[in-house]
Design a protein around this nucleic acid. Structure first.
Lengths: 142, 142
DNA sequence: ATTATCTGTACGTGCTACTTACAAATCACG
DNA sequence: CGTGATTTGTAAGTAGCACGTACAGATAAT
């Protein structure tokens, strides 16, 4: 039998990634439930903070999401008054996003919560292993 | 800036896992579309083949899914005639699952498709790195 | 025998992702 | 300059997956 009790299925690397992802998602949902934000939503807020005026297309590409998916997330954040849009200068058809004050405040709270979440995740590894894991994972999506 | 163009977000290990998972899912969906099966469905078929008579609860625990989620997957497979249930001997309340002939046949096709999918995934790494990655990932969910 | 627990079932909700389609603005080329 | 191609934003529909909850039947515990 395999090392995880799943038999030959344990040899499927894709399954391991899926299980790890599920575990991280579950922990995030528990640990960060008070924010009322999903992982994706936090990512979008974070990016909009770091790069004010970013467009939907940039968000989608950076987070490797579909445009339609990105729209759904952005709409939800706008509806909650965390994100605003502005027709920005040079390119008239481009609409940039930036955080509202509420958005900035919630993002700060989110970063604090994620610090704890990431600490839990990293606690499974040594600092060197974290580097290795990050490097290997990047090869898949990078 | 970070190494992936996401700025400080690149330091979030959870995001890396999420992006890697997404990339794997997308490749699976493309590469295995002809099966008409999702990753989860293949996993359930695979387990039911390896352990005939397995119960819903076992499936849920092994794949770390909710019972309700497991039910949805099992129902879909039953409806397609790939999976059957039987009231098995000793424990009268327990219902075991096993593959039909169609199920066995489709699972063989799925395994062939997944061979290709896994080959693509593993091609990002050396054999040693695959071992390392598998070992590190298991610490998260194991 | 009455609870408590486990298992199977069923329903509803929410997030994410994809496809497809359409409107508006811009850009490129003739 | 104007027509078509491209980009961008928008919208609707479908699907998978996860979770919560509630309920029924069988078994187990007291």
């Amino acid at each position: 039998m395999g090392d995880g009790g799943r038999g030959p299925l344990d040899d499927i690397l894709g399954l391991r990634i899926r299980l790890a992802h599920g575990a991280v998602q579950r922990h995030f949902a528990e640990h960060c439930a008070h924010l009322g934000l999903t992982q994706k939503q936090v990512s979008v807020l974070w990016l909009a903070h770091d790069a004010p005026g970013i467009a939907q297309t940039d968000l989608a590409r950076t987070l490797q999401m579909d445009r339609a998916t990105t729209m759904a997330i952005v709409h939800a954040l706008e509806k909650r008054g965390l994100l605003e849009r502005e027709r920005a200068g040079a390119d008239a058809r481009r609409i940039g996003f930036h955080l509202t004050q509420d958005g900035e405040q919630l993002l700060r709270a989110a970063k604090a919560a994620i610090d704890g979440h990431e600490a839990w995740l990293r606690a499974h590894f040594t600092a060197r292993e974290v580097q290795t894991l990050a490097r290997l994972l990047e090869r898949i999506y990078g």
